[in-house]
């Protein structure tokens, strides 16, 4: 793995170096320009600094696939207009950058710090308007969500891919809908509004923001649900139950039968 990523880094070293020079020049210019045209606008300054940082990170880590201006390439989609939410989801859940060119990106520890992710998101958001990262004020699912309503919405809109208990499920050609256990509420929200990878987009009219909070609250309630009838057997339905019945049930009883039918000495 490490070798692979090193290789990738090496592959992008040349263009990256070249671009770094450009970036530095560009940045310096932008900085000077900013100070000249809008003196004292610190908030917008901070933002433009983040955009600049984000662009740097982007050029180092993402541009080899997504293109120098995030316009997309042969293997990766354009990021123009995907919005900050999409970046926060993809990078924050470790899906991007991808480990390899498999059928889909999977959740893994993020390679970037929160600050770096935020900068990246800010940069991509600066390219064209798109869904923003939901803030804490928006993610009030504990207060505004309704678990039962969320369950109903989940079963209609999500369960066919993610399974009725959010355990994940199979899609076509080896793709999977991931398990939703242990996913940050923010990331769940972002996934619904951005439709990452195979997942469709659930707009705010199809599922209102309040309904989205209900869904999150329901997922969290499933996540925190303790065993009610013993070991859960993976919550994937009758397959594991059947296996258990044969191995733990008939298997055990056959073992006992052998004991029963053996002559005592």
């Amino acid at each position: 793995m490490r070798k692979l990523s090193r290789l990738r880094r090496r592959k992008i070293t040349a263009p990256a170096l070249l671009l770094l020079a450009l970036v530095i020049v560009g940045n310096a210019y932008a900085f000077i320009g900013a100070t000249v045209t809008t003196p004292g606008a610190t908030a917008s300054n901070a933002r433009s600094t983040m955009v600049t940082e984000g662009r740097e990170i982007f050029l180092r880590g993402c541009s080899s696939c997504h293109g120098l201006n995030a316009e997309g390439g042969g293997v990766a989609p354009s990021l123009v207009g995907v919005g900050a939410a999409s970046v926060d989801f993809q990078v924050g859940t470790g899906r991007m950058p991808m480990a390899d060119m498999s059928v889909q990106a999977i959740r893994k520890p993020s390679r970037y710090t929160a600050a770096e992710t935020a900068a990246l998101a800010e940069y991509v958001a600066s390219l064209a308007p798109g869904p923003a990262i939901p803030g804490a004020a928006q993610l009030t699912f504990e207060r505004d969500g309704n678990t039962a309503e969320g369950g109903e919405l989940f079963r209609t809109n999500c369960a066919m891919c993610h399974n009725a208990a959010g355990q994940g499920g199979a899609l076509t050609q080896g793709k999977q809908a991931p398990s939703l256990m242990g996913v940050e509420p923010r990331h769940i929200y972002e996934a619904m509004i951005t439709g990452p990878q195979s997942m469709p987009v659930f707009g705010d009219k199809a599922i209102t923001p309040q309904e989205k909070l209900s869904i999150i609250k329901w997922i969290k309630s499933v996540e925190n649900e303790k065993g009610l009838g013993g070991a859960s057997l993976g919550k994937v339905g009758p397959v594991t139950e059947g296996l258990m019945g044969w191995v733990g049930g008939i298997g055990l009883l056959i073992a006992i039968s052998v004991w029963l039918a053996t002559k005592s000495r």
């Binding site: 369950g151 109903e152 079963r155 209609t156 369960a159 066919m160 891919c161 993610h162 399974n163 009725a164 208990a165 355990q167 994940g168 499920g169 199979a170 809908a177 499933v222 065993g227 009610l228 009838g229 013993g230 070991a231 859960s232 057997l233 919550k235 994937v236 339905g237 009758p238 397959v239 139950e241 258990m244 733990g248």
Partner: peptide
């Protein structure tokens, strides 16, 4: 060992379905 946890599946309605229905 939990078996057939019906509370997880929810009530039946023809418009819903769970991945891994067996």
């Amino acid at each position: 060992a939990s078996i057939n946890p019906i509370w997880v599946f929810g009530p039946y309605t023809p418009t819903q379905i769970s991945a891994g229905s067996q």
